[in-house]
Design a protein around this nucleic acid. Sequence first.
DNA 1: GAAGATTGAACCGTCAATCTTA
DNA 2: TAAGATTGACGGTTCAATCTTC
Lengths: 165, 165
Amino acid sequence: MQRDVSRKSLTVGLVDPAPWLTDEEQHLWRRWLLVQNRLATVLNDRLQTDSGLSLQDFDVLTRLTDDATGKIRITQLATGLDWERSRLSHHIRRMQKRGLVEREECPDDGRGAFVVLTKAGRAAIEHAAPGHVRTVRRIVFDSLSADELKMLDIINRKVLHQLET
Amino acid sequence: MQRDVSRKSLTVGLVDPAPWLTDEEQHLWRRWLLVQNRLATVLNDRLQTDSGLSLQDFDVLTRLTDDATGKIRITQLATGLDWERSRLSHHIRRMQKRGLVEREECPDDGRGAFVVLTKAGRAAIEHAAPGHVRTVRRIVFDSLSADELKMLDIINRKVLHQLET
DNA sequence: GAAGATTGAACCGTCAATCTTA
DNA sequence: TAAGATTGACGGTTCAATCTTC
């Protein structure tokens, strides 16, 4: 493989520079970043247009419908979403203002709190889900073969594992 | 494959609901989103700690070093980064305040402007690049086989293509 | 003191409006 | 009128500080 000569200047003068990415690696890497950004943007825009929800709203509401009672402890929800607690707290405040969720005190633990799905919140996700699922299906699952999907998941497991070190 | 029964409630009452994702598909999909978020977070944190640059700063500076003159027209840079022009404009202002880049008028086109790499900007990316490349190598390229990398790029091409429709 | 949660400040990204020049 | 670019307002995210309860 060819080294990327356009970046030679970055390594001049260094004794043992880290090897830069090859052209091929760099194209792969940039394309990957591009897909990540575009995917989030497209999904968000569709969802927003179709149902007035953001991808984040959708994720929160989905977790709430996962539970039969429609309510979850804040920290548990934050962990499940892989969000910081403060991020969730801010987001809940904004969703509450729009009537999608409510807060509720926790009887067991005076420090704790629940997020509760409202009727409007349930209606919102029921309205949004079919279209969103169709979009995800069309962009991801319908355009990749079973083998590709399997390999993609293996790759993601490996990268995730590497991210934890 | 099993349908995800926990989500049955979302489709009750709809005549021809879009099929929800199967359990397997949903795990794959959520893991993919998780990897995207974690990857960006980890790379950003490392870069920030090691060199005081954000991933976005790094991208901008890299594009500037790609050009031998170290300056690019705003719109061209925005296109290359796949950013909105206004986003780039805001970002350039913040980077300018930190001395990493400067603006320069365009002699050919009175409306246009260049972003120019400063000495400090060049020093910053030369300092940041080796560590960042090492991180990317470790997390992505070293942990995946040649076949997996090839497949990953094919997958990304397909998804990207699907995103354009 | 530690855990659950919220808050405010600062920064980032998007959108619509604006300004200037072609 | 359209293209290049900037701006201000607004919502989203992080970080550190805070408050309460365990």
